[in-house]
Amino acid sequence: MKTIVICSGGLDSVSLAYKVAAENTLTRLVSFDYGQRHAKEIDYAARAAQALNVPHTVIDMRNIGATLTGSALTDDIDVPDGHYAEETMRITVVPNRNAIMLTIAFGIAAANQDDAVATAVHGGDHFIYPDCRPAFTESFNAMQKAALDGYADVTLYTPFVHGSKADIVTAGAAVNTPFADTWSCYKGGENHCGRCGTCVERREAFDLAGVTDPTVYDDPDYWKQAIAERGNA
């Protein structure tokens, strides 16, 4: 199955790219510049494409992203510290982001006679992001079947949608994903901050999966505090 992977350069999408390359035919990685706080993650997507020997397409969505205001990922709003499942992390929602990206990716797939578009949405995202939930991915897939009816047959591939971040680490390790060459932190410093929701979730996932985390964090122990505070809430 010829598959393109939407790849941000993060742990989830790079692991997915390696999984697809091992199990199917990976044809390209597609990344999106929507004016996010930093574009550092796209550099990591480029590294993955080079390592996997596939093209890397970067779609410029900055004009669109500029209108999707109100998110800490696109506006001058501080990224909160704490666990991903905290209510405060809703400030990182970019409205309809996945729906927009997937629509473009399906067009690319159809134009290039690919069979599937893969995205690394997972169960840990469900609380915060509505466009990562199974109800969305199933409906989107049905919508695209109608949109491309008679022209192309492209399927949405979401192997992690019912799984956890730890499951992704386990799956990534099984296909030798170079975890050190992935970027998750929303703050975009020299190292992962260790305090934002995605850093906490990343560090916790490696611990739960029993896989050594090669990531350098500025605050490597904060995740334990964040998880404890969430449990006491």
Rank of each mutant, 00 (worst) to 15 (best):
M1N: 04
I4C: 06
G9E: 07
G9V: 08
G10K: 02
D12E: 09
D12Q: 00
S13D: 13
A17S: 14
K19I: 12
V20Y: 02
A21H: 09
E23R: 10
N24A: 14
N24R: 13
T27D: 05
R28H: 03
Q36Y: 04
D43W: 07
A46E: 01
A49N: 06
A51D: 08
A51E: 11
V54W: 02
P55R: 01
N63A: 11
I64T: 09
I64F: 09
I64M: 06
T67S: 06
T67K: 13
L68K: 11
L68G: 04
G70M: 05
A72K: 00
A72Q: 01
A72F: 02
L73E: 02
I77T: 06
I77N: 01
G82W: 05
Y84K: 06
E86K: 09
N96L: 15
R97K: 14
N98C: 08
I100Y: 05
L102N: 04
T103V: 07
T103R: 08
A105G: 02
F106V: 02
G107N: 15
A109C: 13
A110Y: 06
Q113P: 07
Q113S: 15
Q113E: 15
Q113V: 05
D114S: 14
D115E: 01
A118E: 04
A118H: 01
A120H: 02
A120V: 00
H122P: 02
H122Q: 12
G123A: 01
F127M: 12
Y129E: 07
C132A: 06
C132I: 02
R133G: 04
R133M: 10
A135P: 09
F136G: 03
F140M: 12
A142V: 14
Q144D: 00
A147Q: 07
D149R: 15
A152M: 04
T155I: 08
L156S: 00
P159E: 10
F160A: 07
V161S: 01
H162S: 12
S164T: 11
K165R: 10
K165A: 07
K165F: 11
D167K: 08
A171P: 00
A173V: 05
A174S: 15
V175A: 06
N176F: 07
N176V: 11
P178W: 11
D181C: 07
D181P: 10
T182K: 01
T182G: 03
S184Y: 08
Y186L: 04
G188E: 03
N191S: 06
H192T: 09
G194S: 00
E201W: 06
D207W: 15
A209R: 11
A209F: 02
G210W: 08
T212K: 15
D213M: 06
V216R: 13
V216A: 13
Y217P: 08
P220I: 07
Y222G: 07
W223T: 08
K224L: 07
Q225C: 05
Q225W: 05
I227V: 15
I227A: 14
E229M: 06
E229L: 12
R230E: 03
R230C: 02
